[in-house]
């Protein structure tokens, strides 16, 4: 138990970074998913086409490859390190790539949520002279959002797990810190076990929070 006690602060620092990346990616993935879903449902063919291509590309390639490609591949042909800074670029690029990847799945969640709202709701909004934006903003999205909560929480849990793929491209977070600790202590079993436990606590509390939310919505189920 000694390696654990000694290295717990280092690992907790890694956990803090993991939570930070998760929070950023979860917020961005919702924003991106919302925009891309609205584009997919747009009347403008070009917007639909761009959004569809985005979703397909990110869903049909592995996240790890996307990360290598953008974090390590892109600097080979573009002076991105000079633009953003040698240390900042990988962090920004990794966070952004992760958000784009998760955003592709959120796009489908949001799209299904919007399409799931009864057509009569939209027609009623139109009949009281709401324009497309007002109909979305005040009528369709609030109703879609409620049915989107469970799959979104699910996706958020996936995002937390996916932050572990940031370590291979050199981003410091929980797994990265763990590998450093193991290199020094050789306590492979204990440290990986502890890391797994930390992820478990994080994601388990999220899913508990989710079922709490669902129960709340069940109580006033509008």
């Amino acid at each position: 138990m000694d390696p654990i006690r000694q290295n717990l602060p280092v690992l907790l620092d890694g956990l803090r970074l993991t939570i930070q990346y998760s929070v950023v990616a979860i917020i961005l993935m919702v924003v991106i998913g919302l925009v891309a879903a609205l584009m997919r449902l747009s009347k403008v063919a070009l917007l639909r086409w761009i959004a569809t291509a985005y979703v397909e590309i990110f869903r049909s390639t592995p996240l790890l490859v996307q990360l290598f490609f953008i974090v390590l591949g892109l600097p080979a042909i573009l002076p991105v390190n000079r633009w953003f800074g040698q240390l900042t670029y990988p962090i920004l690029a990794a966070a952004f790539t992760l958000s784009l990847n998760e955003g592709a799945y959120v796009t489908e969640i949001v799209r299904a949520g919007i399409l799931g709202v009864d057509r009569g709701q939209k027609e009623a909004a139109q009949s009281i002279a709401m324009n497309g934006f007002q109909t979305m903003r005040y009528i369709v999205l609030p109703q879609a959002f409620k049915r989107m909560i469970p799959p979104l929480v699910n996706q958020a849990a996936q995002t937390i797990k996916d932050t572990s793929l940031l370590a291979p491209v050199g981003i410091v977070e929980l797994v990265y810190k763990g590998q450093i600790v193991i290199a020094q202590t050789f306590a492979s079993f204990a440290i990986w076990g502890l890391i797994a436990a930390l992820y478990f606590i994080l994601i388990f509390s999220l899913s508990k929070f989710s079922s709490y939310l669902e129960r709340r919505l069940q109580v006033d189920k509008r």
Binding site: G120, Q121, A124, S127, A129, M130, P142, Q143, K146, R222
Partner: peptide, 20 residues
């Protein structure tokens, strides 16, 4: 069309009240 619809009300068979 939005200007026009302000002058034309509609009531539906299924009411279509905003559920939320």
């Amino acid at each position: 069309i939005h200007k026009l619809r302000q002058h034309v009300g509609m009531v539906f068979q299924q009411f279509n009240l905003f559920k939320h």
